[in-house]
């Protein structure tokens, strides 16, 4: 059987798997960004009651393995009465894990904005929330876009683990096809290529484009 025949026969399943992977990617990315923003801001608070939960969260999720977290969310949380559907459990685990890394990027990005910007905003009598939202965050965003590009690639790779709780993503389909055809090179080779294309031809160029747009907005390009 040629590779083209292989593709003709199993292409549909690869496509289904890719769509699920894409869904996992976008949902977990959205969750990771939201968590990163909230936890990153909380970690910068002067108030220990606000800061501590963020510190603990970031420590736990960065300090333990994503796979263990995934199993916890899918297999252990139901014992405490929280049952998530496997698709949901998948992107929640990936989003929460990468969100903890993202929080550090948000914190670093905010801290990289020069003190003079805070002072200038304060000198206009802007409230703390306005200073953050209108002056500091837009500049922090520009500074942290490059590392976020890397993080999103990591996140994409991380989504492959959800196949282990039987979410029918790209990796899951590749394993299924391998199991029924024993064409390992073709099955996992195709998955490899699709992941690579997704990362290098979609995610990375999109982030580059975003960097250029933001740099232009800030008058740097």
């Amino acid at each position: 059987m040629s590779y083209w025949e292989f593709l003709a026969e199993h292409g549909g399943r690869f496509l289904d798997g890719t769509l699920i992977t894409a869904g996992q990617f976008f949902l977990s990315a959205a969750l990771a960004i939201a968590i990163a923003l909230v936890a990153g801001l909380m970690k910068l608070s002067d108030n220990a009651l606000i800061r501590t939960p963020a510190v603990v969260y970031i420590e736990i999720f960065r300090g333990t393995s994503l796979l263990v977290q995934l199993y916890w969310i899918f297999f252990v949380l139901p014992l405490f009465g929280i049952t998530l559907e496997k698709f949901t459990a998948g992107f929640v685990a990936v989003g929460m894990n990468l969100g903890a890394y993202g929080a550090e990027l948000v914190r670093g990005g905010i801290q990289s904005v020069p003190k003079g910007q805070w002072e200038a905003a304060y000198a206009l009598s802007m409230s703390p929330a306005r200073r953050m939202w209108r002056i500091i965050l837009p500049q922090a965003l520009v500074n942290m876009l490059p590392p976020w590009g890397n993080l999103l690639i990591e996140l994409l790779k991380g989504t492959a683990l959800v196949s282990l709780i039987s979410v029918a993503d790209l990796m899951f389909e590749a394993k299924q096809i391998n199991g029924s055809t024993f064409l390992s090179a073709q099955a996992f080779g195709t998955a490899l290529i699709i992941y690579y294309i997704f990362a290098r031809l979609i995610v990375t160029p999109f982030m580059r484009w975003l960097e250029t747009v933001m740099a232009r907005k800030i008058g740097k390009a």
């Binding site: 020069p114 003079g116 910007q117 200038a120 002056i135 837009p138 500049q139 907005k217 800030i218 008058g219």
Partner: peptide, 8 residues
Amino acid sequence: QHFNLFPH
């Protein structure tokens, strides 16, 4: 001294 205009 260093202006501190908002660059964005």
